[in-house]
Design a protein around this nucleic acid. Structure first.
Lengths: 350, 350
DNA sequence: TTGTACGCGTTATCAT
DNA sequence: ATGATAACGCGTACAA
């Protein structure tokens, strides 16, 4: 509660001197400097952030507008951003959008440069719609720096920090084909979403490259959730299992590429219901890297990005402001775990 | 970027009138009032939050200090707090503690009344340690309102908003015993944690009340994670399954009470490995209510609190400040799902 | 009802 | 090297 004038009085100097001691050390004479520091300690003085920011005309806060913070993926992102922000002296304001477009527009319209230096957009939902783009433009017009950590927004001057979605599902598919699998199931999202389309293309391209045919029936919409993934896989198994792919007479293994961990869970449950074991009967890869993938039994092979790297690139773009590149790609990584290993290979892990 | 003086000039009035139009509607003459509102629109004026707060001496931001935001439980809490804060005009600043005591102390020491109105503490870790209590006291001395949404902090003037942990595990246990189960396994945490002790007591009290004996071997430490829960259950099954409890000759069902969803996952995996089906061979209850419990297959019976209610009580305590009651209990609820149903009863759901 | 002027706590400019 | 003071944008007491 002590202010700079109190410190000045206690130290017997002017407020200007106190300010200098704190901000331009070395300019003030050693004796006065010491007296000021003593007074600061004695009075337990802390500069008023508000007054500082008002004077400086800049706030060290970034708003994280996130689709659904109760999803571990977004939680991990928030965590990484908080850590990275700490390094740069920024704080993170959290706004949960509940995956609603109108909440995003409202949240954007409420932000000001007096609250917030910049905004991090992170939602899988399509941000290309006119109302959203308009809200982004308005916010930018108010001087806010906006960065999107999930997708490239077409026709928008918003810096994007994105994984290569297509390359990720392509690598995941490649991994399974390399392991000798010929029958592959892709559990993705609806083609309405540009991101989902990207991922499906990655799957199909990889299959084409590797000479594996894609049965349209094997491309499923799991709606990014457990139940629909389970249901669609179950339906597929009912129709085709033992006829077109394993386990039939010779029980050939087949593969599943699932986009996120919830879809992986759905896949495990469907497989389980048909007596299929992972990885003995089914090899499985997930296109996002979360702690749960490691904790799962068997541990799940993933192709994913590192959240710390994503956060780092995001802050770099925020700080660069309008100087930031339009698109920054975040590298991804294939982490092979038991879920996609040949039964014989697992022992080598130990 | 327009300021109040710009609006005043455009409307041909003084800044005081503009301020009044915005803050004390009804005081200003209708014609001037309209001119001001028009000017506000035309200039796209937004009051400067910083200057406003500086003048008002109060900030409408609360800091959420959370153990690990990548856990869905904490994510759900953050989401609910964001929503409730919105209702009261507050924003939520997120700080992830990574379950580290020193991070908590540091985060608390960095907060000021010029940044933050109050602080919500939410971590399962023990907050009773001296360094933490000291940091809390320091923060309170600086005028911050502190509320703890996870536990009662002994010897501290911090308002607590807490579930009745003991009652929750007790109700979960009661539910299983009522369903006719005599062999119960409790997957909890280490007794080092006060919260874990509470939960274990709830389990034991319920057993005592219901005349069910507690085998100390059946009280496990799952460390709040998948793998340890899986391992400890697996070890127990190896030693005792088919000897002391089902499935033996007559395959009696038995029950598992697990504290959180990660432990439930571990339990499912251990059960699966021994060919035990939920709920046919094992009935299962989880002591926290998360979306994943519903999505799981089979859906998991839970005893848990409602996050919206928790958030509501938390903000009530924040706003009440020193007038807030020392402890506010959040009601819990038993939601019976398939995981604990008798095989015959499941059909009735449909 | 309306306008003038001051203060919120800082920092930077300008003298000294 | 140091001190007095203006300015950041707003709300309100006081005067008119």
């Amino acid at each position: 509660m002590a202010k700079i004038t109190d410190v000045a009085r206690a130290a017997g100097v002017s407020v200007a001197t106190v300010s200098r001691v704190l901000n331009q050390p070395g300019v003030v004479a050693p004796d006065k400097r010491q007296r000021v520091l003593d007074a600061v300690r004695a009075l337990n003085y802390t500069p008023n952030t508000l007054a500082h920011a008002l004077r400086a005309g800049q706030v060290k806060t970034v708003a994280l507008l996130v689709g659904d913070i109760s999803q571990p993926f977004h939680g991990a992102l928030a965590k990484a951003l908080d850590r990275e922000g700490e390094r740069h002296g920024y704080r993170v304001l959290l706004r949960d959008l509940d995956n609603k477009e109108e909440r995003l527009v409202k949240a954007l319209d409420e932000l000001t440069t007096s609250d917030t230096y910049g905004v991090v957009l992170a939602t899988p939902d399509d941000l290309g719609m006119a109302p959203v783009r308009a809200a982004i433009t308005r916010a930018q017009g108010r001087g806010l720096v906006i960065v999107c950590s999930s997708q490239v927004i077409e026709n928008s001057a918003t810096a994007a920090i994105v994984p290569r979605y297509q390359a990720i599902s392509r690598l995941a598919t490649h991994h399974l084909v390399t392991a000798g699998l010929k029958s592959l199931i892709f559990v993705g999202g609806s083609d309405d979403s540009p991101l989902s389309r990207e991922r499906r293309l990655g799957f199909e391209h990889a299959c084409a490259e590797m000479g594996v045919s894609v049965d349209p029936d094997f491309v499923l919409d799991g709606e990014f959730a457990v139940e629909p993934s389970y249901q669609s896989l179950r339906a597929l198994f009912k129709r085709r299992l033992g006829r077109d792919f394993g386990p039939g007479s010779d029980r050939p293994r087949f593969g599943i590429i699932a986009v996120n961990m919830r879809m992986v869970i759905g896949a495990f449950q469907a497989a389980d219901e048909f007596g299929l074991r992972v990885p003995d009967d089914v090899a499985l890869v997930c296109c996002e890297e979360l702690p749960l993938a490691t904790e799962w039994r068997p541990p799940v092979t993933t192709v994913g990005i590192d959240f710390a790297t994503l956060a780092e690139a995001t802050f770099a773009a925020l700080i660069a402001g309008s100087e930031a590149p339009a698109v920054t790609f975040v590298p991804h990584r294939l982490t092979v775990r038991v879920s996609s290993m040949l039964p014989g290979a697992q022992a080598i892990l130990a």
